[in-house]
Simulated scan of single mutants.
Amino acid sequence: MASTTYTVEGMTCQHCVRSVEEEVGEIEAVTGVTVDLATGRLVVDSSAEIAPDLVRAAVAEAGYTLAN
């Protein structure tokens, strides 16, 4: 099991958090998603390595961006 941390920009409310959690949670091999609104921290737990571009695309689908 792997755990990777990202920073999401642009979230302002719990609806934002749920949107990111739902989109990232749909990626194959993701076993858990935790988003901290106050820090913008996104922690993705997975059963296999996930390409950062997949996470970036899922976050973008939710309407937000990953910090570089």
Rank of each mutant, 00 (worst) to 15 (best):
M1N: 08
M1F: 07
M1E: 14
M1C: 01
A2L: 07
A2N: 14
A2T: 12
A2I: 11
S3T: 12
T4K: 09
T4C: 06
T4S: 07
T5R: 02
T5V: 15
T5P: 08
Y6W: 00
T7A: 14
V8Y: 03
V8T: 04
V8P: 03
E9Y: 02
E9A: 13
E9D: 08
G10I: 05
G10C: 05
M11I: 12
M11F: 03
T12V: 12
T12Q: 12
T12G: 03
T12Y: 06
C13Y: 13
C13S: 05
C13K: 07
C13F: 07
Q14D: 15
Q14H: 10
H15G: 15
H15C: 07
C16G: 05
V17H: 04
V17F: 03
V17A: 03
V17C: 00
V17P: 02
R18Y: 14
S19D: 13
S19I: 01
S19C: 11
S19M: 08
E21D: 02
E22I: 11
E22Y: 09
E23T: 06
G25S: 02
E26C: 05
E26N: 13
E26P: 04
E26L: 07
I27G: 01
I27P: 05
I27N: 08
I27M: 01
E28Q: 08
V30G: 06
V30K: 13
T31S: 12
T31V: 01
T31N: 05
G32I: 05
V33A: 01
V33T: 12
V33S: 01
V33M: 00
V33C: 01
V33K: 02
T34E: 13
V35I: 12
V35T: 15
D36G: 14
D36N: 13
D36S: 15
L37E: 03
L37Y: 02
A38D: 15
A38V: 09
A38R: 13
T39L: 06
G40R: 03
G40Y: 01
G40H: 03
R41F: 14
V43F: 04
V43Q: 08
V44R: 14
V44M: 10
D45I: 11
S46Y: 03
S46V: 14
S46E: 06
S46K: 06
S46A: 15
S46D: 04
S47I: 04
S47P: 09
S47L: 07
S47T: 13
A48G: 03
A48Q: 09
A48I: 00
E49F: 02
